[in-house]
């Protein structure tokens, strides 16, 4: 447990000290959402209708774009190999990395989403659901994405490949996330959607680090 926390605090420290690069995902999120009114047109009614979908799609892409940071730097300078000697199972090391990824991308996205929802003129009833879906759903993005990041670790310029691997797997998260907000906006019960989303995340917590660790092991051989 001590090593587990040490890895998280080390990675967090690295992320904060690096500054700019860490929050690029957030800036990407803001920028993508800004593009939608420009592309679709500024009518408030249309924007309000598409707001949940736009926010979730943009969050998905932002989370995906920051995935290559997950293991890459540590793999290149060899510290990933050092970490495997710490005695902690590889899947837990991977889980620590995933938690850091969520703290540096998922959490900022979660905090920025309501502000952007206001800009997109989203219905007031949807805000609680938006925050809840982001809170429950973004960890799943980090967890599932870790598998893709681990698989493309040895691939040079793996970014496009990563998106091809990960985006189809993100679809359920997107669907349940958006339908929960849509339900809340239309005054319906958002709970079933939230529960399904939570089920996805809960199932991903044990399975994804395990699969990602198997993939990381391949590139360390």
């Amino acid at each position: 447990m001590k090593i587990f926390l040490a890895i998280i605090s080390r990675d967090m420290l690295l992320a904060v000290r690096q500054g700019g690069a860490t929050f690029l995902a957030l800036i990407f999120f803001l920028l993508t959402v800004t593009l939608f009114p420009l592309g679709i047109g500024p009518e408030p009614a249309i924007l309000a209708r598409v707001a949940p979908g736009v926010l979730w799609v943009a969050a998905l892409l932002a989370a995906m774009l920051s995935l290559d940071r997950l293991f890459q730097a540590d793999f290149e300078d060899g510290s990933l190999e050092q970490l495997t000697l710490s005695g902690l199972p590889l899947s837990l090391i991977v889980l620590a990395k995933i938690i850091t990824h969520w703290l540096t991308t998922g959490l900022p996205l979660l905090l920025a989403a309501p502000v952007l929802a206001v800009l997109l003129n989203m219905n007031d009833e949807g805000f609680e659901a938006l925050l809840l879906t982001m809170l429950i759903g973004t960890p799943a993005l980090s967890l599932i994405g870790a598998i893709g990041a681990a698989l493309t670790l040895t691939v040079r310029r793996g970014g496009v490949l990563l998106s091809l691997l990960v985006l189809p797997l993100y679809i359920p998260v997107l669907i349940f996330g958006v339908s929960a907000i849509d339900a809340a906006v239309h005054g319906l019960n958002a709970k079933p959607h939230l529960l399904l989303l939570a089920a996805l995340t809960v199932a991903a917590i044990p399975l994804c680090p395990w699969a990602a660790a198997a993939a990381v092991k391949l590139s360390l051989e």
Partner: peptide
Amino acid sequence: NVPIIKFSVDWW
């Protein structure tokens, strides 16, 4: 994931 995707798409 295939069954999960299938289920979620049906739901959607």
